Each structure stands twice: as structure tokens, then as C-alpha cells.
Simulated scan of single mutants.
Amino acid sequence: MDMEQENQNLQEEEVETETSAEANETVTDQRSREELLAEVARLSAEAEDNKTRYLRSQADFDNFRRRSRQEKDEFAAYANVKLIEELLPVLDTFEMALKSTGESDAQTVLTGVEMVYRQLMVALEKEGLAAIEAVGQPFDPNLHDGIMQVESADHPANTVVQELRKGYKVKDKVVRPSMVQVSQ
């Protein structure tokens, strides 16, 4: 009996589904041709508007990319201008020292060279350059380039004993590691 009841329920559901589908067709059929054409025209206009907005957005993005590339190229071309402006007084002092070498003694030339060195260091320090401290520090392969090991009774093992060439960093980036001798 339960099986019969289930079959009857399924048949009733099928009849209801067919009836609602026929009702939907009737509603669709009841829409006039003019209403359907108006709907198609509205959807076509909406699609055209979306296409136009898409093309404008694409053009804006292409312009943004082009401007960004131009700004990047310009920045790269003129990035060193500030540093060069800082170094021009150093160049002037060098020229004055070179002009005076024929008329002065060695001490005057040495004083001029020391002035040039100080001016150069001040200009580079303004740009973030800093010397890497090496002698007496533990050896760090990120900061030091160890070229030889020496025996040292004064320093613990793996300590920088002598700096052969000064190392520099700009902010936190190592520009050139210090060339050092390290104790064994």
C-alpha cells in the first residue's frame, strides 16, 4: 500500500509541474512582441554601455601604465642629481688644491687634501653612507670579506684583527664589505 501511495504522490507532482510549466508558457506568450523588442533593445543598450565602460577603463589603465613607466624612467635618469649637487663643492676644493700645488709646500697640499676628504665624507654621509666597523669585531661574512687568517694572542678566535680595505653600507645595505684579516 505504501508503494501505491508513493506512486500516486509522484504522479500528482508531475501533473503539478506540467501545469506550472504550461502556465509560464502562457505568461511568456502573453508578452507582446513590442515588449520583447523593447526588452532586447534595453539589454542591447546595457551591453553597449558596459562595453564602452570596459574600453574606457582599459584605456585609463594603459595611460596609467605609460605614465608610471615615464615617471620611473625620469626618476632613474635624475636620481643622482642630489648627490652630484653635494659633491660639486668637493670638486671645487680639489680644483683649488690642484691650482695651488705649484706655489705651496707639502703641508698646504696635505691640508687641502684633508679638507677635500672631509667634504666628501660629509656629502656621502648625508646620503646615508656609513663605514663598517671591523677591527676588534667578531667576523661576519655579511659585513667582512676575510682574505686571510692570522695567529693572534691578543684577539679571540674568529675576530677581525686588521682591516685592509674599509667597507661601507648605505642605510642597512652593504655596498662594499670590509677586506679583513681574521684571528684563528
Rank of each mutant, 00 (worst) to 15 (best):
Y54N: 07
E34W: 15
T52N: 07
R176C: 05
Q137A: 00
F139Q: 04
D145C: 09
V40R: 06
A59D: 15
L88H: 13
K166I: 12
M115N: 12
A131N: 03
V81S: 06
Q162V: 04
A59R: 15
R31Q: 12
K51A: 08
E86T: 01
H155S: 07
G128D: 00
L98D: 07
N142Y: 15
K99D: 08
K51D: 10
Q30M: 08
R42W: 01
R66Y: 11
M121H: 09
T52D: 05
Y54L: 07
A134V: 03
V40C: 01
Y78D: 06
S104P: 02
E163Q: 08
F61N: 12
I132R: 05
V182C: 03
S178P: 05
T19R: 15
E74H: 15
F61V: 07
A106K: 12
V174F: 11
A59Q: 15
L120C: 09
S57I: 02
L129Y: 09
R176P: 02
D154E: 15
H155C: 04
K126P: 00
V116W: 03
N158V: 01
M115P: 00
P89Q: 04
Q119A: 09
D60S: 07
V113D: 03
Q58W: 06
E71F: 11
R66A: 11
T17E: 13
P177V: 00
E114I: 01
S178V: 02
S100G: 09
V109Q: 02
M3Y: 14
S20Y: 14
N50F: 03
R66I: 02
E95K: 06
L164A: 10
Q8E: 11
N80K: 15
V182L: 04
V116N: 04
K126C: 04
R118Y: 10
N24V: 09
E163N: 06
Y168F: 05
A21V: 10
K166M: 14
R165H: 10
D92V: 05
N9F: 11
S100H: 12
I84F: 06
V170A: 12
L164Q: 14
D73Q: 14
Y117F: 11
Q162D: 06
R53V: 07
D92F: 09
K166C: 07
A79M: 07
M1V: 04
R53Y: 13
N63T: 08
T108S: 03
E34A: 14
L83H: 00
P141H: 02
L83P: 00
Q162S: 09
K171S: 08
E46S: 05
L55S: 03
Y54M: 07
D105V: 03
N158F: 11
E22L: 11
